[in-house]
Amino acid sequence: MSERVYQLEVLRYHPETDSEPHFQRYSVSCEEEWVVLDALNRIKETIDPTLSYRWSCHMAVCGSCGMMINGEPMLACKSFLRDYQGVIRVEPLAHFPIERDLVTVIDDFMDKFKRVKPYLIPKHEKPVSEGEYLQSPAQLKKFKQYTMCINCMLCYAACPEYGLIPKFLGPAAISMAHRYNQDSRDGGRDERQEEIATTEGVWECSFVGACSEVCPEHVDPASALQQVKIKSTVDWYKEHLMPWVKK
């Protein structure tokens, strides 16, 4: 293991004292196999204890340390220093208001996430005495990929549509709705469609695909959204051309 000095340019913003955000340059000695989060931790421990950022697990599970690294939405714990040349620019996630330094205000995402009802709504409530809800491997496979989402919001920072139209429900929330809609134990699709089959829901997506490129868990939100579009289109034709067909 060998140490070398890395240059980090970090966006700083303290709303109590700063009128607007500005960059601050740090030179910090790091091990070559470290990630950007390690560098931030060393800055906070040895140079500047006022630097604020979110992190928790350091292993790409908690989804807390999403930030823009050289302009790309990344998890700081998954971005190796050795993969960058020169000064590494670190900014808070794009498309979110800044609370302080690299900490963003995530209320908008949390609100949208709640709106799609990201939990099982059983088709039939049954008493425990009747046993488990059984599921085959094929039924599990239909949605398992979408359960991998860690709510890191990188897809929101990457999505140009969300940047343009803040009302857009966005990739992670719609993917999570799709995850429950695809679950054989679930019966809540009609309720979720009221949120996601709207203009501000899935139809704001123009399939740029950036969400899937930046997703650290390979959820592929873009695939979920396109599947939702197909299913919502079938719904629309059924509702308007065959209103006598009961869902």
Binding site: T198, T199, G201, K229, S232, W236, Y237
Partner: peptide, 12 residues
């Protein structure tokens, strides 16, 4: 919120 009529265009 009302469901969108975009499927007419998107279907084609």
């Amino acid at each position: 919120m009302a469901k969108s009529n975009k499927p007419i265009i998107w279907g084609t």
